[in-house]
Structure formats: C-alpha cells, structure tokens
C-alpha cells in the first residue's frame, strides 16, 4: 500500500569515545533526505545496538567507531546480528578506517565503509539505490 515508506536506519556510536558530532551531522542530513533515523545515544554496547535494531525493525545499521576498535567491535556486532536473526539488516561503517582493513570489513558482511569527509550525497544515494532488504 505504501511503496515509498521511509527507510529506517539506526545510527549507533559504539565504544568509549565521547564525540557524537559526526553522528549528529549525519543524522540530520539523513532526516532531511527523508529517512527515519533512530539515534540511541553514545557509548552503545554491541548487545544494546543489536537489541535496538531488532525492536526498531530497522532496514540499516550505521556504526560509527574509533579507529583501532573496528576489527573487534564490527565482527562482534555482525555475529550478534546473525545470532538474533537480523542478518537481513544492511550494515554501514563510518570512521577513520585504514585502507587495508576495508576489504576485511566487507568480508565480514559490512556493505559499505564511509570515511570521514564522505559527501552526504554519497551516503544518501547509496542507501536509496540499495533500498531495504528488511522489507524487500
């Protein structure tokens, strides 16, 4: 009935660093592009992120984290998503990720990595073209 229902995306700031300026900027830009952005706040544990994605029935999960934690936290979240029956949710990673690690993240199941300074239009265009696997 409602073909262009807005995509729902959870934007999670994972780990212990206390900056959420970047996530907030992305949140607002996605909202202004017509997305429904669920922002659960700072210092999310992987378990809490996965619980939020499930209860919110999100189409996408955007993970923002500090360099150095990505090779431990991202696989942890992806494993938890699988265990929770949420492997249909598309996963994006944002942050300063060394070039060499990007293929590793893709192999783990991350759909795209967006480095700092990625134009918002790239993210928006990407999400629009991918659509939803949750509500295929």
């Amino acid at each position: 009935m409602n073909e262009q229902a807005p995509l729902r995306i959870v934007l999670a700031k994972v780990g212990l660093d206390g900056h959420d300026r970047g996530v907030k900027v992305v949140s607002r830009a996605l909202r202004d592009a017509g997305f429904h952005v669920i922002y659960p706040g700072l210092w999310q544990a992987p378990e809490a992120v996965v619980r939020t994605v499930g209860d919110e029935d999100a189409d996408w999960l955007g993970i923002s984290l500090l360099s150095g934690t990505h090779l431990t936290l991202v696989p942890r979240i992806i494993d938890l998503l699988k265990a929770a029956g949420l492997d249909h949710v598309g996963v994006l990673v944002g942050g300063i990720i060394p070039e060499a690690d990007i293929p590793k993240l893709h192999e783990m199941g991350v759909s795209r990595v967006f480095g700092p300074g990625t134009p918002m239009t790239d993210i928006i265009t990407y999400l629009r073209s991918e659509g939803s696997r949750t509500h295929a």
Binding site: P6, S27, R28, L30, R31, D32, A33, G34, F35, H36, V37, I38, Y39, P40, G41, Q44, A45, E47, A48, V50, R51, T52
Partner: peptide, 17 residues
C-alpha cells in the same frame, strides 16, 4: 521531507538482556 530524527531512546535505559 517526511524524514524524522527519533532520539527518545537516548534518554531511556538500555537493557539488552
């Protein structure tokens, strides 16, 4: 735009288990 920023969870407890 029909977009929305849904931020109420920030203020609510996170009890994943």
């Amino acid at each position: 735009t029909g977009g929305a920023l849904l931020g109420d969870r920030i203020r609510m407890p996170s009890r994943p288990d």
